[in-house]
């Protein structure tokens, strides 16, 4: 069937809205985020040895493989070139401890994409951040291996070392801020260097891929909630500055909490989301059985995103109540 058009109409192009496009496609955004994680990858190699590249490659490989396999089986278009599976794999790898076993990495990565993302219907439909789902699964499946931290630059020999958070929680030792900024402390391969993460994170904010409201409100929240406890008893509770530079806080705040699919869309919602993450994080870190809580805090607040979106929708202009 063809529709006959008069000649005068033929000079107009018919298109549905939106008519303005920022030029940022999903593909471009994803690859920019991948690029901004490069400093973290470099810091991982510097502090924990080049062997960590195996973990990163395994994770990315299995993330892409699982995505392609599931899309092929469910007869959908294979979309691993959009970079989202690469990003999930990369983020998961960066939150694993040094010299983590490769086959466990592969399982976690396949789980992240399979259960964390594709089961819900693929990119844009997942409720929880896929990389964190994979990380949570690995934490539950291999609790001993995932909390065995080898010392920076000692690699292979399994000289175990407490992370700054564990050192504080169990022995009340405060790691100096300078080491946490540079990154030569125990921890997951991509989370130890504050400078590397900030470099990537601020770049994303500068090119406006990441909305500044979420990281800022998480940091403010930690200052408020962590600060209250610090003021109550500075010996028992760490300072907010320590909270920010210890553990996976920065990586979580800049790269995990800001995931488009699993964070609120409204400005007000973003503040609520960020403050909520900070509150849960401080509670887990100070009173929970585990030393670190960034992962669970973000996953927990992910579950609230639909309801936050619903109640913070701006009122349409001119609509009467």
């Amino acid at each position: 069937m063809t529709v006959e058009r008069s000649d005068s109409l033929n000079q107009f192009e018919l298109k549905i809205s939106p008519h303005l496009h920022s030029g940022w496609t999903t593909k471009k955004v994803m690859w920019y985020v991948n690029l901004s994680l490069l400093p973290c990858v470099i810091s991982a190699v510097i502090f924990f040895g080049w062997q960590q590249l195996f973990i990163i490659f395994t994770s990315i490989f299995f993330a892409c493989g699982t995505e392609a396999l599931i899309q092929k089986l469910s007869k959908r278009k294979i979309s691993i070139d959009d970079g989202s599976a690469v990003l999930t794999g990369l983020l998961l790898a960066l939150t694993l401890p040094p010299n983590f076993s490769l086959w466990a990495t592969a399982i976690g990565s396949a789980f992240a994409i399979g259960i964390g993302k594709q089961v819900f219907g693929g990119l844009g439909f997942n409720i929880f951040n896929p990389a964190l789902v994979g990380r949570a699964f690995l934490q539950a499946a291999f609790p001993v291996q995932i909390t065995t931290w080898t010392m920076p630059n000692y690699s292979i020999d399994s000289v175990t070392l407490a992370t700054p958070l564990a050192a504080f929680k169990f022995d009340k030792i405060i790691t100096p801020l300078s080491s946490m900024l540079i990154g030569n402390v125990g921890g997951c391969i991509g989370e130890t260097s504050g400078i590397a993460i900030l470099l990537g994170g601020l770049f994303l904010i500068a090119v406006r891929i990441v909305n500044w409201r979420i990281p800022l409100s998480i940091i403010i929240g930690v200052f408020i909630f962590g600060g209250i406890f610090f003021l109550i008893d500075p010996m028992e509770y760490p300072s907010p500055i320590f909270h920010i530079f210890a553990g996976g806080f920065l990586l979580g705040a800049f790269f995990m909490a800001t995931d488009y699919v699993t964070s609120p869309v409204t400005a007000k919602g973003m503040y609520i989301f960020g403050l909520g993450i900070a509150l849960v994080l401080v509670i887990i870190r100070l009173f929970g059985g585990l030393p670190e809580g960034v992962m669970y805090a973000i996953l927990f607040m992910n579950a609230f995103v639909p309801i936050i979106n619903r109640y913070t929708l701006p009122e349409p202009f001119g609509l009467r109540k």
């Binding site: 539950a140 499946a141 609790p143 291996q145």
Partner: peptide, 8 residues
């Protein structure tokens, strides 16, 4: 290595 999560 057993995956503990399975018996949780």
């Amino acid at each position: 290595t057993p995956m503990l999560v399975m018996i949780l």
